[in-house]
Amino acid sequence: MMPAAPANFSKPLITIQPGKRWPTLQWRELWAYRELIYFLTWRDVKVRYKQTLLGGAWAILQPLLTMIIFTLLFGRLAGFESHTGGVPYPVFAFAGLLPWTFFSNAITTSGNSLINSVNLITKVYFPRMIIPGAAVTAGLVDFAIGFVLLIALMFYYQMTPGWSLLLLPFLVLLTTLLAVAVGMWLSALNVKYRDVRFAIPFVVQIWMFLSPIIYPTTLIPQKLRVAFLLNPMTGIVDGYRAALFGKPINWIELAISTVITSFAFVYASFFFRRMERGFADII
């Protein structure tokens, strides 16, 4: 074992004081703990499908089965398949379901991540944002697996994406940011009010019906369109479809989503940092 370096700092390395009213966002510290983000993500990925028969196949089965049900129910019965702008309904639904499944799983696990980590929060220090954050990034692996099936579907229906596909990384980033924002907000609230745990499934369900997952945005009456666009998932899901199917991108829609997502992220970060102080005491 190496002898510890003598403490020859002229300035203290760490100063502990009661928190200020307006906390900082501690980006530098998050950067210092980047390896921990990786390890917690890796843990969640490793553990998720442990002791399951089908393992990682669930990452494909989840959106696939939902897609089949939706195709039968909404595509055929409700007749949405004639409004997709020429895109076969299964691909249309799947392209929406893929980011949606990622997003909804991410906010569900992320929203419950803090209260499921009591043993960490009360026993060891690290920037708490890492917990809901890693819960989201762990979902990216499933997201990537799901894309493989999407490519297969598009190949089957002989669809070729265009240059707009280059927008995809940005869309993934935007979805992740939004999921982290919502996840941080829900998880912090969950520490104080355990109602959140029960409310999350309903929020997810309602949010899905308010987003253009099973139907195209064009079906929304013009009067309601503005309100509809305030949902950042609208621009994101439409963006995915446009990018994948080579359709023109609605830049205004996407810009609205980006602005709202950024606001949500900043707000949630500050909210989280303010709530964070009490975590160890009230969890």
Partner: peptide, 18 residues
């Protein structure tokens, strides 16, 4: 717990040089 930054103090200050 305060020294290890798990919970915050209500008042006072700690300086750690390591």
């Amino acid at each position: 717990k305060i020294l290890s930054r798990i919970t915050e103090p209500t008042s006072g200050r700690i300086d750690l040089y390591g």
